[in-house]
């Protein structure tokens, strides 16, 4: 082979390998959104059953369900890491600073954001709380630009905004009811938005040096432990939690945990491989997938705002995933 043909073959092979890596990351993000939508539908079915539909406080059932979901997700992920020969990395990673940063990310994304989300819906109504929390990809992307020096082009920003707008349209319900603690509810919804944004940035920072498959295993396990020790006792959720082991809904939560674990696994890989801005925009496409799976598995009716929102999300997603070559270097030096 001549020197020129060797050089051009090297160039072609290198470009192919780089593109393969970035495409895997984008595909992981898209599938993570789909699985999160399916997870939400299955978890919703479980939460409508005993014992989650009861409980001595309004939040006991949903929080116990969220705790069990993360517990099952952590368990399935541990099995996955056991069978792929990574299990020793748990202990090695937990004694490092990046490992502790992943634990901190799990606090923001798990108990803090999820509790803020539920309280926000209760105090300010679903219309406002869902619209505010749907903005977490923008918060994550802004934090990533400043904290991680992530490169986000104007086209990707537009894609992120469209994905958020689509999620708001899909989740929109006309405001109704009386909310005496309305502004506190808005504040808690904002806390949830910030929590999910921070989770993405902190975990991505940690995953520079931590295997994403281990990072998400730690994230789910840490979230479960904090729910069990710090959140459920306050929300009177421990009784619901233990009662669930005697009910059929346990199988639904276990299945939702499997879908959630897989979704998070792929989402953390996407965060590591494509950056916070893109991965979060792809993750929020769950709103689109939740409509599809809700229509398929439950009696959800397709309305004009569901279809309109789905179209907007699809356009946003296409803008986010276009030109994977941008992902060869994720950050400004």
């Amino acid at each position: 082979m001549s020197e020129i043909s060797v050089a051009s073959r090297i160039e072609v092979l290198q470009a192919k390998q780089e593109l393969s890596h970035t495409k895997k990351g984008l595909l992981s993000g898209v599938i993570s959104g789909a699985l999160w939508g399916l997870d939400g539908v299955i978890l919703g079915m479980a939460l409508a059953m005993a014992p989650f539909s009861g409980g001595s406080s309004l939040y006991a059932g949903p929080l116990a369900g969220a705790a069990m979901h993360d517990g099952f997700a952590g368990f399935w992920l541990f099995l996955y890491n056991l069978f792929t020969g990574r299990w020793r990395e748990y202990g090695r990673t937990l004694v490092t600073k990046p490992g502790m940063i992943v634990c901190l990310a799990s606090l923001f994304g798990g108990p803090i954001a999820m509790s803020g989300y539920m309280l926000g819906i209760n105090m300010a109504g679903a219309s406002y709380a869902l619209a505010i929390t749907a903005m977490y990809p923008a918060v994550g992307a802004i934090l990533a630009v400043f904290l991680l020096k992530e490169k986000i082009t104007p086209r990707v920003w537009l894609g992120i905004i469209l994905c958020i707008a689509g999620a708001i349209i899909v989740g929109y319900t006309p405001p109704e009811g009386d909310f005496p603690q309305f502004y506190l509810g808005l504040g808690l919804a904002l806390l949830a938005t910030f929590g999910w944004g921070m989770e993405g940035v902190l975990s991505t920072f940690g995953m520079d040096m931590v295997d994403p498959d281990i990072a998400i295993g730690i994230r789910e396990a840490a979230s479960f432990v904090v729910y069990l020790i710090g959140v459920l006792p306050i929300a009177a959720g421990l009784i619901v939690f233990w009662d669930a082991f005697k009910e059929q809904s346990l199988y639904y939560v276990a299945l939702a945990g499997l879908m959630g674990g897989l979704s998070y696994l792929l989402w953390y890989r996407a965060l590591n491989m494509t950056g916070v801005g893109r991965a979060m925009a792809l993750n929020i496409t769950y709103a689109l997938w939740a409509v599809f799976f809700g229509w398929l598995l439950t009696d959800l009716e397709l309305t004009a705002n569901l279809i309109g929102g789905a179209v907007v999300i699809t356009v946003g997603t296409l803008l986010v995933v276009a030109n994977p070559k941008e992902l060869v270097q994720l950050r400004n030096k």
Binding site: D208, M273, R331
Partner: peptide, 10 residues
């Protein structure tokens, strides 16, 4: 690992 570490600039 190497591709990811390269993408983030390590």
């Amino acid at each position: 690992h190497l591709s990811s570490m390269r993408a983030v600039g390590l």
